[in-house]
Simulated scan of single mutants.
Amino acid sequence: MTEHRAHFDAEIVFVNGGGLSARDFRLDLPAAASGTPSEERILEEQFSEDRIAQLLIAHLGLALVQSVELSKLRIVEEQHRGSRGVPQSDTEGSTQPEAAAASPRRVVDLSHTIRAGLVTYPGLPAPTITPHLTREESRSHYAPGTEFAMDVLTMIGNTGTYLDSPFHRYEGGADLSGLELAELVGVRAEVLHLTDAASRGIPASVFYDRDVAGAAVLLHTGWDAHFGTPEYATGSPFLSEEGAQYLVEQGAAIVGIDSLNIDDTESGGTRPAHSLLLAAGIHVVEHLTDLGQLPARGARFTAVPPKVEGFGTFPVRAFAEL
């Protein structure tokens, strides 16, 4: 199902005085049925200014509104960002929570493929794969018709899509063997679609309308489109120090991003997001991909590394269940 959003300017007046002005505001629009559910689409004439004003008031949680005047209204085909008061739909066209009952579970892979020679982070060694026992050699060890391949994978923990445990940043922090599975499996996801953000640093304010306590906060910047290319290394989006501090205060469980690093790697070596999040026991997952397939709310996120003692970072098979 195609998703649409309304773009407009707004002037809001309250019955008890005061008002709000908005410029180039963007608001998710619910699907308007036209025929069968498979033919659902949104048409501009099906959404009056009054209807969009009602959605705006619900999204902002406003009370005692006297009037809403909209101007420069246009409706565009655009992925939903999670406006309050608008049922969120998955990519199969069903709304939640009805989708849980009507549609089978769908799993979205959020991990990059690891292969020999892959450059994840410029300057770090690429993985190598070498045979320990080839299929041909194994034939002399097993019954006729039985053969195996055994290979050796050599790589740094920071390869592909990986999870940082507190030990990665702090000597006394929990290593990979000390992580609780309950904090990594089926965690409620809050997905922030930020592909049209005007600046690289993601501020705390983008989280204010989300319930991030105990959630996997996934930052969809679209930077994964550059993964494996020279462009991936510079100019990538990151979580600001204020944003990290807010997520710590609110008790997020996991923070993931689809860019080069959760921190600004061009800041001269400071790593406030890593420092704040990992000190609070909040796991960091970097180099995610395909976050654009997830709804703003309603998915369950899983990212589990192997149980390695004395190790702080390792690739994960990250995925979301819808």
Rank of each mutant, 00 (worst) to 15 (best):
A6S: 09
A10H: 02
E11C: 09
E11I: 09
F14N: 02
G17P: 00
G17Q: 00
G19P: 03
L20Y: 10
R26V: 15
P30D: 14
S34V: 10
S34L: 13
G35N: 09
T36A: 13
P37L: 02
E39D: 11
R41A: 08
L43M: 15
F47V: 03
E49D: 14
D50Y: 06
A58T: 00
L60E: 13
G61L: 03
Q66I: 05
S67Y: 01
S67Q: 04
S67E: 13
K72C: 14
R74V: 00
V76K: 07
E77W: 01
R81G: 08
G82H: 08
S83C: 11
R84E: 07
Q88P: 02
D90C: 06
E92N: 08
G93S: 04
A99H: 01
A101I: 01
A101E: 11
L110H: 04
S111T: 00
T113N: 11
Y121F: 12
P122F: 12
G123I: 09
L124T: 13
P127N: 10
R135E: 15
E136A: 14
Y142W: 13
Y142V: 03
E147N: 06
V152R: 12
V152F: 08
T154Q: 10
G160T: 10
L163R: 10
L163E: 11
S165L: 02
S165V: 08
F167P: 02
H168D: 15
E171L: 04
A174E: 05
L176C: 06
E180G: 01
V185K: 08
R188T: 10
V191I: 12
L192K: 09
A197R: 12
S199V: 10
R200C: 02
R200F: 04
G201A: 14
F207T: 13
A213T: 10
A216G: 04
D224V: 00
F227A: 04
G228M: 02
P230L: 01
E231H: 03
A233Q: 06
A233G: 04
G235S: 12
S236T: 06
F238R: 04
A244D: 01
L247T: 07
A253T: 14
I254E: 04
G256C: 06
D264K: 09
T265P: 09
T265Q: 15
E266C: 14
E266S: 15
P272F: 10
A273T: 10
H274Q: 11
L276H: 04
L278C: 01
A279Q: 11
A279F: 00
E286Y: 06
H287K: 12
D290G: 11
L294S: 11
R297T: 08
A303R: 11
E309Y: 04
E309W: 01
T313A: 09
R317I: 14
A318L: 09
A318E: 08
F319G: 03
F319C: 07
E321R: 13
L322Q: 10
